[in-house]
């Protein structure tokens, strides 16, 4: 940054920062330490790895659709399910949201503003209510099925399936994918696209070699902003999955309600570590793609 060096009252920065530094230390950093502390201690705060071991070894009986019962590692199943559903939802959001962001960024300025507002309006609705609205749409006797039977079509059973959970996640977090990609694309220099065309790129080439690499920071933050709430949600799965598809969030909430704070902390701790690793790898890979494209 090329700021003029002798900033006015540079010496007073400390006094201005003291309240916030203290606040963020006590209420942001210390609580995270407490998650680890609770995760590795028992009820009387003695060190133990039992919570972590329990996470990896606890088993329960899983009843498959054909009625066969098999013993599975409870929390590992919950974790992989959470990741699977969140990844599918994120991918759908990306595939649907990317063209949308592109269209928005290429529209007239006035249209852009209107579309932005329209995309944001659903976000102003509490997500509990949005999710609940989907429940009444997708129910076996819901609006969708009323419509289908009215047309003489058979009833579709969506509620209580993984599909319903994915629909809920996509709907609730879709704007978070569009907005960051759009704001990057809106700033993109049109001359670059023209130059690429002049230099012999076809439409697809421009998209692949110019637009996509340039929009990648938007894609990264969009993916982050959809993936993280999808993985950790605990309401969508209860309402749209009829409680049949426990996710990580449900597991944490369940332990919190049962007052097993140490085990709840252990699940939260493991989720945090996996998310950190996952986002780190994701950012590393996407940065490779960018530098490889140049």
């Amino acid at each position: 940054m090329q700021k003029k060096e002798p900033r006015l009252n540079g010496g007073r920065a400390g006094a201005l920062l003291a309240p916030y530094s203290l606040w963020s230390l006590i209420f942001i950093l210390v609580p995270l330490v407490f998650v680890a502390y609770y995760a590795f201690t028992d009820e009387s705060f003695r060190f133990t790895t039992e919570n972590i071991t329990r996470f990896f070894t606890a088993t329960s009986n899983l009843k498959a659709d054909d009625g066969t019962v098999s013993e599975v590692r409870t929390y590992l199943v919950i974790f992989s399910r959470s990741f699977k559903l969140a990844l599918i939802s994120t991918l759908i959001c990306l595939v649907l949201g990317y063209p949308m962001a592109y269209i928005m960024a290429r529209a007239k300025v006035r249209t852009q503003k209107t579309m932005m507002t329209l995309v944001m309006i659903p976000m102003w609705m509490n997500f509990l209510i949005r999710t609940y609205a989907w429940m009444t749409i997708l129910q076996d006797t819901g609006i969708l099925n009323n419509f289908l039977t009215g047309l003489g079509l058979p009833v579709v059973r969506i509620i209580g399936t993984e599909t319903a959970v994915v629909i809920g996640m996509v709907y609730d977090f879709f704007p978070y994918m569009i907005l960051p990609i759009y704001s990057i694309m809106a700033k993109m220099d049109v001359k670059l696209l023209e130059a690429a065309r002049d230099l012999g790129c076809n439409g697809f080439g421009v998209l692949k070699r110019v637009i996509f690499p340039l929009s990648l920071p938007g894609v990264i933050s969009g993916v982050t902003m959809v993936l993280i709430p999808s993985i950790s949600t605990f309401y969508i799965s209860q309402k749209l999955g009829n409680g049949k598809f426990f996710l990580i969030g449900d597991a944490i909430e369940g332990q919190y309600i049962a007052n097993n704070l140490h085990f709840a902390a252990a699940i939260a701790f493991i989720m945090m570590v996996i998310l950190l690793v996952f986002m780190g790898v994701f950012r590393y890979l996407t940065s490779k793609v960018v530098s490889g494209g140049e």
Binding site: F34, V35, T224, S232, F234, E253, A265, A268, M271
Partner: peptide
Amino acid sequence: MINPDIITGISMMLL
């Protein structure tokens, strides 16, 4: 801003 809400909630609750 980045942490899942549930972690922010749980961590403060523990404190």
